[in-house]
């Protein structure tokens, strides 16, 4: 049987010591790495306002006899999203960065993908903020016919993906 790895072997001519390297079975090592990946960190600021609600030990919201029970009225704002190595990698494990007000596709945390039918949209929330700008985006698409378009919000950048073609923007 031919050795499929024989191209990687060095051989000698048959003058002198017989060539026995052909009989050596080389085992190719197929390494598999276990990767622990620190994902993005979202930094949110929740600011309490109004006169309602109770917070234990709080100077304003913790006054017994004055404060009412329940969480005070509040507003949450995004301060930043920190991406290790300036790379945002959406694994579709959590919906943390899915903009549910826009996305009409199915965000699937079981199969780790977004399933988009015709004219459906997937939009993320802010995936870069505060520290580093976004330089480029890479998307992986299993496309079953037709085409789809990716748009980077706030820029003029977009790319249309057509089945069977590789395109960059």
């Amino acid at each position: 049987m031919a050795n499929i790895y024989e191209l990687n072997q060095s051989t000698k001519d048959n003058i002198g010591t017989p060539d026995d390297t052909k009989s050596i079975i080389l085992v190719t090592v197929l390494p598999e790495y276990i990767n622990i990946e620190e994902g993005p960190t979202k930094v949110n600021k929740k600011t309490y306002s109004g006169a309602d609600g109770f917070i234990l030990n709080h100077a304003v919201y913790g006054v017994l006899g004055t404060a009412t029970l329940g969480e005070p009225t509040n507003t949450t704002t995004l301060h930043g999203v920190v991406n290790p190595k300036n790379t945002f990698h959406e694994h579709y494990r959590y919906t943390t960065y899915n903009d549910t007000t826009v996305t009409t596709g199915s965000f699937d945390t079981t199969n780790f993908c977004v399933e988009l039918d015709s004219n459906e949209i997937y939009q993320t929330l802010e995936i870069y903020k505060d520290v580093k700008p976004i330089f480029y985006a890479t998307t992986y698409v299993d496309l079953n016919g037709g085409s789809t378009t990716f748009i980077l919000s706030g820029t003029s950048k977009s790319v249309s993906i057509i089945e069977g073609k590789t395109q960059n923007v």
Partner: peptide
Amino acid sequence: RIVHTALTKGANDEYIYITNVFFNSV
């Protein structure tokens, strides 16, 4: 360790850090 621009905490502010950690084989 993550670093972001400084955010000065007011008396009515609550800060929330949400970090994802993934375990993959590649």
